[in-house]
Simulated assay, not measured.
Amino acid sequence: MSSPNESGPVLDAASPLPPEIEAADEPVKVPLAIEDWATVIIMGLLACITFANVVVRYVTDASFAWTEEFSVFLMILLAMVAGSAAVARDRHIRIEYFSESGSMARRKRLSQFGAVMVAALFFLIAGLSLRMVWDDYKFEETSPGIGVPQWWYSIWLPIVSTAIALRACGLFVRRGRREEGGAE
């Protein structure tokens, strides 16, 4: 452990996170706790399903047939929910060399451009996936593993894609206000 007089911050198990990591979420109209709790619930379900399958395999030399299909669905849903949280927190992937360089006006325009592109992409995905869900429902498609209606899984793609697009719209609005208030 280093002393407080040295150049680096002093971190131990009891110290708070550094300010760049500890940054508080921006105020948003729809609470970010929705994505946070959805992530916790999905991760908990994944852990329980996997644990139950391991125990059953160990005890009986057989496994639950539905666990792989349901786990894959949950992992995809988890990635989408985490994507929504990343967009809302402005933590999505970008090339920071371009997005964090230049004047404040340029940074604002790039941030807003990125938000518009994310919103457009996910509104497009939501629209196209609605057609897929309708086809799954209309043609009574069933899942390959356990034979449940496929639309039970596919309905979540347009829902979460719309949520991501709306989070990107909110980010666009917040980035537009950021400069007007003189904050940064």
Rank of each mutant, 00 (worst) to 15 (best):
P4V: 01
N5R: 02
E6K: 11
E6R: 06
S7Q: 11
P9M: 02
P9I: 00
P18W: 00
P19T: 14
E22D: 13
A24R: 14
D25M: 13
E26R: 11
P27D: 12
V28Q: 04
K29Q: 10
K29S: 12
V30W: 05
V30D: 04
P31S: 06
L32G: 05
A33R: 09
I34D: 09
W37E: 10
A38D: 04
T39V: 12
T39G: 12
V40D: 06
I42Q: 01
M43D: 00
L45I: 08
C48V: 15
F51H: 00
A52F: 02
N53Q: 06
N53P: 01
N53A: 00
V56F: 15
V56E: 06
R57Q: 07
V59I: 12
V59T: 12
V59Y: 08
D61S: 11
F64H: 01
A65I: 04
T67Q: 05
E68I: 13
E69T: 00
S71F: 00
V72A: 11
F73G: 07
F73N: 09
I76P: 03
L77P: 02
A79H: 11
M80H: 05
V81I: 07
A82R: 15
A85K: 12
A85L: 13
A86C: 06
A88T: 07
A88I: 06
D90G: 03
I93V: 13
I95C: 06
E96C: 00
E96G: 12
Y97K: 14
S99R: 07
E100K: 14
G102V: 12
M104C: 06
R106A: 14
R107P: 02
K108C: 06
K108E: 10
R109D: 03
R109C: 01
L110S: 05
F113M: 15
G114C: 10
G114M: 10
A115T: 02
M117I: 14
A119I: 09
A119D: 07
L121P: 09
F123D: 04
G127W: 02
G127I: 09
S129G: 11
R131Y: 06
R131T: 06
R131H: 01
V133G: 00
D135Y: 15
D136K: 04
Y137W: 14
K138T: 10
F139S: 12
E141A: 15
T142L: 14
S143C: 02
P144E: 12
G145L: 10
G145H: 08
V148I: 14
W152L: 13
S154N: 14
S154D: 05
W156C: 01
P158F: 02
I159V: 09
V160F: 01
S161R: 05
A163G: 11
A168Q: 05
A168M: 07
G170R: 02
F172Q: 05
V173F: 05
R174Y: 03
R175I: 11
G176E: 00
G176T: 11
R177E: 08
E180D: 13
A183K: 11
A183H: 11
A183M: 03
